[in-house]
């Protein structure tokens, strides 16, 4: 018999931080998934907020597309502040 659907769990460790992927679990529906996530991933006060997402709903980039996706960013060094020369003595820039 097939199992309950898979859900991905994201936990906000504390206020001021983003939710971070913590793991996954199986649950019959979203309500139970949220509660299972609370029981499984925040037993040691690891979180103040939880998201669950059906794993099937995540669209991920493929490793095969990695070069096309991510390599073109490599030569855009001018996006980084360290690219620019700042004359000595100039502050707050």
């Amino acid at each position: 018999m097939s199992d309950w659907p898979l859900w991905e769990v994201f936990v906000r460790a504390r206020r001021g931080l983003s939710h971070v992927h913590a793991g996954s679990l199986h649950a019959p529906d979203a309500e139970m998934a949220l509660r299972n996530a609370r029981d499984l991933y925040t037993r040691r006060q690891e979180g103040v907020s939880v998201w669950v997402v059906p794993a099937a709903q995540i669209t991920a980039s493929s490793p095969d597309e990695r070069d096309a996706f991510f390599d073109p960013a490599a030569d855009k060094v001018y996006r980084h502040p360290t690219f620019y020369d700042v004359p000595e003595g100039v502050q707050h820039l």
Binding site: W7, H21, A55, I58, A60, D64
Partner: peptide
């Protein structure tokens, strides 16, 4: 973890 972040080998000839 990364539940759907895989494809069954047979479904994905690229792999």
């Amino acid at each position: 973890m990364y539940g759907n972040d895989f494809g069954a080998p047979s479904d994905d000839p690229g792999r």
